[in-house]
Write a protein that binds this DNA or RNA. Sequence first.
DNA 1: GGCCCGAATTGATCGATGTCAATCGGGCCG
DNA 2: CGGCCCGATTGACATCGATCAATTCGGGCC
Lengths: 228, 228
Amino acid sequence: MLDKSNKATARSRSLLAKTAFMRSLSQSALSVLLDSAQIISLGARSTIFREGENAPAFYCLLTGYVRLYRMGKDGRQVDFRICGPGDVFAECLVSQDARYPYSAQAAETVCVARIDCREVRQLAERDATVSTALITTLSEHLKATTEVLVNDRLHTAPQRVADYLLDRCPVDAGSASIRLPFQKNLLAGMLGLAPEALSRAFSALRSAGVSVRGRVIQISDVKALREI
Amino acid sequence: MLDKSNKATARSRSLLAKTAFMRSLSQSALSVLLDSAQIISLGARSTIFREGENAPAFYCLLTGYVRLYRMGKDGRQVDFRICGPGDVFAECLVSQDARYPYSAQAAETVCVARIDCREVRQLAERDATVSTALITTLSEHLKATTEVLVNDRLHTAPQRVADYLLDRCPVDAGSASIRLPFQKNLLAGMLGLAPEALSRAFSALRSAGVSVRGRVIQISDVKALREI
DNA sequence: GGCCCGAATTGATCGATGTCAATCGGGCCG
DNA sequence: CGGCCCGATTGACATCGATCAATTCGGGCC
């Protein structure tokens, strides 16, 4: 739960500026945001914000992974998005006094930039590169979320795992080796599965030429996997 | 499959202008869009566009309901959103040459406005009310889609049905009566259920004071339903 | 008001996945 | 180098929801 906060260092600034969201901003908007962003380091499992809290800022993830989730009445928590380096989350820029509609937790040691919503909103009024960047980011999130929803409803667990693997295979490869960037725990959450179900899905894929050792996954026949 | 297309009539223009998306536009942007929009009437079950087609335009629904869905390799189709009057869909404004990532079908007789993406994109560059409206619309869709995804992963079928009903009950009512605006078929798709599963969910809710007759649903104790 | 067709319900069954419990394994620290 | 601990796997089971088939219902139309 360490919580070291300070002005952006050179390294953080450069990471932040390379982000998909920031990269397309005008020089002036970029420097305003770089100057006002707070850089925050957080230990594994620390909470970044909680469902229902007031939402004055959104976040840009610099390093590590973050879990976005909601809680059911019974206390069960459900992930619906896993953010990685460069991702923006909590784009709650509409309606001044919004509250976060979900919680965010660092899945490991993490470094995020905290950006004031009001600032961005005002900037977007004057600078079209800012509003365009917002539109682009939102469109992509909408598309990605829709994709996840459809996958959930359409595909079985092994199919979803296969999809995930194929997404990060070179398109034309005959065989491939992938290293998961995080624990299987997180992957399970991403795919809407219990960890046990993820394990079983991997087992089921063994017969399709997928072998797992720790975080490393070998795919002997990419084309065959596509047929699943 | 009738397909009568013409310039916006007075009635269509007024419907279109009252849309959430259009309402907040500047006078000038509004009139540009009203003038360039094509109004199209479509018979029940006609296809508006198909997954993979080139996407030069997005749509604003004036009357009726539209199903957005994707097809699996096996031909099964999965709804992920049901649009009603006033809804905008296929906001595919990013990246010039995008293709529709899903298909859209009229669930009944329908009237839509077809709006050129390029036009809106250009308008947004100059007119902040346009980009703000886009940001608002996209944010809301993202929030709604996330909500659906979380509901799917978190709640059982009767709970999702109860949620749907409660969403359209007066907040403080003791009892309520709701008339579905469309066939149960569509509702099932919205909730990610097979029609049979929707039926069974309604049966399960009988013991919680929910009774169904055709499209009319009586809820004897709203508060009790919230506890499900 | 009655007929008729498509929609909705109901029943039976099966497959998929969540849950709980026990065991295994790997990496990290001493 | 060994032990410990947490994450991963496996097994057994319960539950949910999809599917297929048979029937009933309801609403639109004459």
